[in-house]
């Protein structure tokens, strides 16, 4: 970035971005007992990256989180989700039947909890990866936002 007139923005963003990321993980892992979940957490992670890109420039963001990584993350997320389904199949249940993951009788919840947590991680990867890819694709077309455009 040129000049010093964005200094306050940079300092504040540096403080905020880690908090936003921690909040995203809180939303992710607290989703079972309160409002929230993987869809929201994934979008919040993408928004933290967008804030970083807006303040520090797209090139720095792409060095930190390369485009190939976000692409792969989106695909891996869907694979994790689908993989849980096959795990349930191999354990003798139906597709995505979490009760069968550990072969528990109804009323026991370890399989359900494990299944929900793993697929939520999959959704987190897929949503944050896809959203960041979309942002990179759109933002990658302009080299830099001119000041008079604001």
């Amino acid at each position: 970035m040129k000049g010093d007139h964005h200094m306050i923005l940079r300092v504040i963003a540096k403080c905020l971005i880690p908090l936003i990321l921690i909040y995203a993980f809180y939303v992710q892992f607290h989703g079972e007992v309160g409002p929230g979940g993987a869809f929201q957490a994934g979008v919040i992670i993408a928004v933290a990256l967008i804030l970083y890109a807006l303040v520090f420039g797209l090139t720095a963001t792409m060095r930190a989180v390369p485009p190939w990584f976000t692409r792969a993350l989106a695909a891996v997320g869907v694979l994790i989700y689908a993989g849980v389904g096959f795990w349930a199949l191999l354990s003798g249940g139906d597709y995505l039947e979490y009760q069968a993951l550990f072969g528990e009788p109804p009323g026991e919840h370890h399989g359900q909890h494990a299944g929900i947590i793993i697929i939520e991680i999959g959704v987190l990867c897929a949503v944050s990866g896809a959203m960041t890819t979309i942002f990179y694709a759109l933002a990658g077309r302009v080299a830099e936002i001119r000041d008079e455009d604001w």
Binding site: F39, V43, A130, I134, A137, L138
Partner: peptide
């Protein structure tokens, strides 16, 4: 969530 994904396809 799907809405914003399809919106961005339209924008592209």
């Amino acid at each position: 969530v799907v809405g914003v994904a399809t919106l961005s396809v339209g924008l592209a």
